[in-house]
């Protein structure tokens, strides 16, 4: 480990570092090649479109998680928060539908963004003002959000009003010049995230807070503010994911978004962002989200993995990907 770090620290930013940055994309390419060899249906247009479209949720949330993680924190509550925001949005839309018609979707989406940002702000403030470990704080809010959606739905489901299904459906199933809409939305979120992270003062402060919070503080960076804002960005990303998610099945249930937090964190880390903070790779995060979804797809498309062992094979592939990542460095 020490040798790896020292190699990286040598002042010769040549090929090595580029290769390391390429890691997640090479892994993605490899998984796709394997997929093509296993089953020719894998590369069919429909299958590729399905897989890319459904990875949108994890990718969008993971963009927010890249901010939180690179600033030196963690958010375990995103899956539950997603379910909670989804529930609130559907309830709002259903309440407004009789008076506003399809416009209720727009108001509902706006309410979702506000609620998402507020949930993120709550996490951020408890972490920074309360000075409590992010792991524990977000473990607590994870339970809170999950319980709230269960309570709102009485343990059943909250379906969206029939009248709103058709006008809202294109947000998941529609496309823009042949590109599925959720993919377009993901691209916009990723571009915005990349701009903020790589091109603004805030992005650099995020890295500073994550790599060494004491040094950052001494150089005049308000670490608390940077981290709180990262959680708000995370909350907004969760809300955007929720906006794309609702038209897919048209309901929120207590199992909506279950365990997504783990997929999100895995996607971020596979993508090359350091779990301890200080280094962020937004595009890598997207590759990570795609890798997870492609692997899950391959498990079904291939015939040689027993249904009982699917999770084990997925685990092995993820660990192998991370090991390869380290050795390429």
């Amino acid at each position: 480990m020490t040798s790896a770090t020292s190699t990286r620290a040598t002042p010769e930013p040549g090929r090595r570092i580029r290769w390391a940055d390429m890691g997640p994309f090479l892994a993605l390419a490899l998984v796709i090649v394997i997929g093509t060899l296993i089953n020719s249906n894998f590369v069919s247009g429909t299958n590729i479109a399905n897989v890319v479209t459904r990875s949108a949720f994890i990718a969008i949330i993971a963009v927010g998680a890249t901010f939180v993680i690179s600033s030196g924190c963690l958010d375990l509550s995103v899956g539950s928060m997603m379910a909670f925001v989804t529930g609130i949005m559907i309830l709002t839309m259903n309440r407004l539908e009789p008076s506003m018609g399809a416009n209720a979707i727009l108001v509902g989406a706006a309410v979702g963004l506000v609620v998402g940002a507020a949930c993120g702000l709550l996490n951020g403030l408890i972490v920074t003002l309360g000075k409590i470990e992010p792991f524990i704080v977000t473990l607590g809010t994870m339970g809170i959000f999950r319980a709230l959606i269960t309570w709102l739905s009485d343990g059943g489901s909250i379906p969206i009003a029939r009248e709103l299904r058709d006008p809202y459906r294109p947000v998941y199933f529609g496309n823009l010049f042949g590109v599925p809409l959720p993919v377009v939305i993901t691209l916009i979120v990723v571009l915005a995230g990349a701009f903020i992270l790589y091109r603004t003062k805030y992005g650099r402060r995020c890295m500073a807070a994550g790599s060494n919070s004491d040094v950052a503080r001494f150089s005049g960076v308000s670490v608390a503010w940077v981290r709180t804002l990262a959680y708000v960005i995370q909350g907004l990303c969760v809300a955007i994911a929720a906006i794309c998610y609702i038209p897919r099945l048209g309901a929120a249930t207590p199992t909506t978004g279950a365990l997504w937090e783990l997929q999100v964190i895995t996607a971020v880390v596979i993508g090359g962002t350091l779990l301890r903070g200080g280094k962020a790779r937004i595009w890598g995060t997207v590759a990570g989200a795609l890798i997870l979804e492609v692997i899950a797809n391959l498990m079904v498309m291939s015939n040689f993995v027993s249904e009982y062992l699917v999770a084990a094979v997925q685990g092995v592939i993820i660990i192998l990907a991370m090991l390869a990542h380290r050795f390429i460095r």
Partner: peptide, 22 residues
């Protein structure tokens, strides 16, 4: 084919998409 979808709507949606592709 018989695969697990954990009594979950989302997972069933994805699994069915995969079955349809396969």
């Amino acid at each position: 084919d018989i695969q697990y979808a954990n009594w979950n709507q989302d997972e069933a949606f994805k699994l069915m998409q995969d079955y349809l592709a396969k």
